[in-house]
Amino acid sequence: MNQTPLHPCYAPLPGARMVDFAGWRLPLHFEGGILAEHRAVRGAAGLFDVSHMGRIRLRGPHAAAYVDWLATNSLPEAGSSGCRYSLLCAEDGGCIDDIVVCRPGEQSLDLTVNAASRARVLEWITGPNPWTRSGRALPAIEDVTSRTAQLALQGPASLEILAARCDADLAGLRNYHFLPGIRVAGIPALVSRTGYTGEDGFELFVDAPDAPALWRALLEAGAPLGLVPCGLGARDTLRFEAGMPLYGQELGLGINPLEAGLGRFVDLAKGDFSGKRALEAVARDGAARKRIGLEMIDAAVARTGHAVRRGEEEIGRITSGGKCPTVGIFGAMALVRRDAAEEPEYEIDIRGRWKRAGARPLPFYRRGTGPRTDEAAVSARGKGRRP
């Protein structure tokens, strides 16, 4: 089982519950538990070890053209210090992975990929694929996951915490932009204003040997402001509450990005890219399915894989479900047939019993607005509670 460079920092902590995830030994939660960590990120800040995420560098004269072909979204402009959320799609439009592209140079591009997808992504981008079969050259491709580390500092206090240990002006760093070659607690780092929690925050990329010192420095700087270490459990509840997709649940080889509600990250106006023809056909004809949000009416908790029906007809499956602590509901995301995606109410098969759920717009939580209270989102039928 793989361990990140930060494993020795937190494995001995009181209350640290370690689990195996995608081949890595990682914390599920610490002493306070998942709910306390979730609330810390929404109200102050949380520090996550996300070094299990894959980090792949592409360099050389063909790097920009190749990543532009790989990714559904347009690339950040050279010199913009920009990052882009994007997707890697197979020729049939199915998602190989969702990624973040960072462009530190004209022909230098960094991909952050999901841990569970890393081997598949590397196999795809190193070929064979339509690019290589056409005889076009590949750039230099290097998997740097094992010799680097990635920390995520998330929450409304994250800027103040990081600024106290940083030699750069972070206040002016825009969302989905990065600063390379700066020092945080004296440690060289690339810092991006990105995250997976629905809050303001930063991700820090450093050499693996430097990660423990950076972890300790950030926790020390943030303790007076309520910073706590956080595990996988809170990361999942935070992203779910914010309506963010998880690869393997809302995305996969059998789910295209238009079905998943990610059409804004598919630039059909740009040049050729893998899966473009298939996605053009989906855009023209309409996606067969749609990702929707649900709020439990009956006292029950929907979980991944539960069937969804309209009347007596099964029309889809739950992709993610659980409690939304900030909003105070039990919610779910589901992938359902397009012709059944606008119903006001559905039923979910939970342990052999059909439980009612009402349609609710995604995301359940949006930073700066608090819980969703628009008329369409508030059900007069009540809120599900844990049974």
Rank of each mutant, 00 (worst) to 15 (best):
A45T: 10
R277Q: 10
G384C: 13
R59M: 07
V41I: 12
C95Y: 06
A299E: 08
A16Q: 09
A377Y: 05
G254D: 15
V336W: 02
A341S: 15
G384I: 03
A16M: 11
A334Q: 03
R25H: 11
H38F: 12
D349M: 12
R353I: 09
R337W: 03
C89L: 06
G311Y: 04
E295R: 14
A288L: 15
G32N: 06
L28G: 03
M53Q: 12
G316F: 01
P128G: 02
A171N: 13
V327W: 10
L28T: 00
G60F: 07
N2E: 09
R289K: 13
L262C: 15
R351I: 05
A281T: 15
S80V: 05
P12R: 09
I161F: 00
R284V: 03
E259T: 12
A221Y: 01
L251T: 02
R356Q: 10
L151I: 07
T237I: 06
R366K: 13
E37L: 09
D200P: 06
P27F: 07
L258N: 06
G316E: 02
A288R: 15
A22L: 08
C95P: 11
E199M: 07
G155Q: 13
G305D: 03
H306C: 11
A78C: 01
T145L: 11
L204K: 00
A65N: 10
Q249G: 00
P212V: 02
A40S: 14
R239E: 00
I96P: 05
K323R: 14
R216P: 01
A152S: 14
A299S: 14
V121N: 08
R103Y: 06
A71Y: 00
M1R: 14
L13H: 09
A359E: 03
V336N: 04
I297W: 05
R118D: 00
E220H: 15
R55H: 15
K290S: 10
P212E: 02
A164K: 07
G195N: 08
P245N: 04
F265D: 09
A357V: 04
F202Q: 00
G198M: 08
S146M: 07
E314C: 10
M333V: 01
L13F: 12
P371H: 12
I350N: 08
L58S: 06
C83Q: 07
R183G: 03
R42A: 13
N129Q: 03
C95H: 04
I56K: 13
S158C: 06
P14A: 15
P104L: 01
P188Y: 10
L13I: 07
G195W: 11
H177R: 14
I348C: 12
L87V: 10
A288G: 15
A137H: 08
S379P: 08
L179D: 00
D349Y: 07
